[in-house]
């Protein structure tokens, strides 16, 4: 039973003049309890907007967002407030999302003032200390301000703040993309560990394939506001059927120098303006595998295999569109360096 369902959600942003930008275009997916779904795409694909729509940080134009049996879009403000305790978000820039004038303790404890008003000051401090410990921070840091912390510690504070109301679902919006590689590893491990212990459900928004393949169970690839392909990480990474997914995978730079990933399958040009209305397949203007009907036939998501949906009308092909680089299947870094024996 999915804990979250997104059904046919759309959102258009309007400027003062000119046509609107259709940032999210008829997007549907569901996430099972305890599962991580990754939304991957390049800038302007609409992936972050989807996360914000799900939490009603912005209002959708159309569609349903069902969380735990409730339609989030139809909740009254009071009901929404209660629902928000169980749906939280962690943002990309930890420092910018933390008030520099507040102490770490006050930042992490703040959601309790809204969601658990009955707590005494002492009870709240105890919950904050417990939460800091949970995310691997010394509870003594509660008195410090965000500026005194490293980037990794700041992101742990962001995670503690999201977790303190005991949510069940968390939107992780590029939570590690501003962090150094060694710190990124710590945060990913923490997120994975918390998911197992607290049975959390994640929507993991990212443009980085290596973190996605590490943390996600399923992945949805977005382009111009649409999902191009959705399925298990194994399906999408090892048997990509949509040309956009393939181009994205081909652009991946393996950190293993013995793996020569070649950029042989390329989209032409750059992402068209999202204000331009596309008649057929949204990828038509750039697609190396396009055929004539693609210009006029709208490409709809359809199921190829159970749990694997794709938009390209040519899929599945008896011949693969390109030979997917076999090394991409392992999709990882170099062989783990052998740790030297403790001398």
């Amino acid at each position: 039973m999915p804990i979250v369902q997104v059904r046919n959600v759309s959102k258009t942003f309007y400027r003062d003049r000119g046509p609107g930008v259709r940032a999210v275009n008829d997007v549907s997916f569901s996430i099972e309890e305890g599962e991580t779904l990754a939304l991957i795409g390049e800038s302007g694909s609409g992936k972050s907007t989807v996360g914000r729509l799900m939490l009603r940080l912005i209002e959708a134009d159309d569609g349903e967002i069902v969380f735990d049996g409730h339609d989030v879009r139809r909740r009254s403000p009071e009901e929404l407030r209660r629902l928000r305790a169980t749906m939280q978000v962690v943002f990309q820039e930890p420092y910018e999302s933390l008030n520099p004038r507040m102490s770490i303790g006050a930042i992490v404890g703040e959601p309790l003032e809204i969601h658990e008003r009955g707590l005494s000051g002492r009870q709240r401090a105890a919950r904050v200390a417990e939460m800091l410990d949970e995310v691997g921070l010394d509870p003594a840091l509660a008195g410090r301000r965000p500026g005194a912390l490293s980037g990794g510690q700041q992101q742990r504070v962001g995670i503690a703040r999201a977790l303190i109301t005991r949510p069940r679902f968390i939107v992780l919006d590029e939570p590690t993309s501003s962090l150094d590689l060694s710190v990124q590893g710590q945060i990913l491990r923490l997120l994975q560990d918390l998911q197992k212990r607290l049975k959390l459900t994640y929507l993991y928004i990212s443009h980085d394939l290596s973190t996605v393949s590490y943390i996600a169970h399923r992945v949805a690839v977005m382009y111009l506001g649409q999902i191009r392909e959705i399925g298990s990480v194994d399906d999408v990474v090892n048997r990509p059927q949509d040309p956009y997914t393939r181009a994205l995978l081909n652009a991946f730079l393996s950190p293993d120098p013995t793996v020569r990933t070649r950029d042989t399958y390329r989209l032409s040009g750059e992402i068209p303006s999202p204000t331009q209305v596309q008649r057929g397949c949204f990828l038509y203007s750039r697609c190396p595998s396009r055929i004539e009907p693609c210009a006029s036939t709208p490409a709809d998501l359809r199921q190829l295999d159970p749990g694997h949906e794709v938009r390209c009308i040519r899929a599945p092909l008896s011949q693969p569109l390109v030979t997917v680089n076999p090394e991409l299947r392992t999709f990882g870094g170099p062989p783990r360096p052998t740790q030297k024996q403790q001398a």
Partner: peptide
């Protein structure tokens, strides 16, 4: 060694 070990890879622990 630690830097290369921090690269996330599916199905493996990330080195800390």
């Amino acid at each position: 060694q630690a830097l290369l070990g921090s690269v996330p890879r599916r199905g493996e622990e990330i080195g800390i």
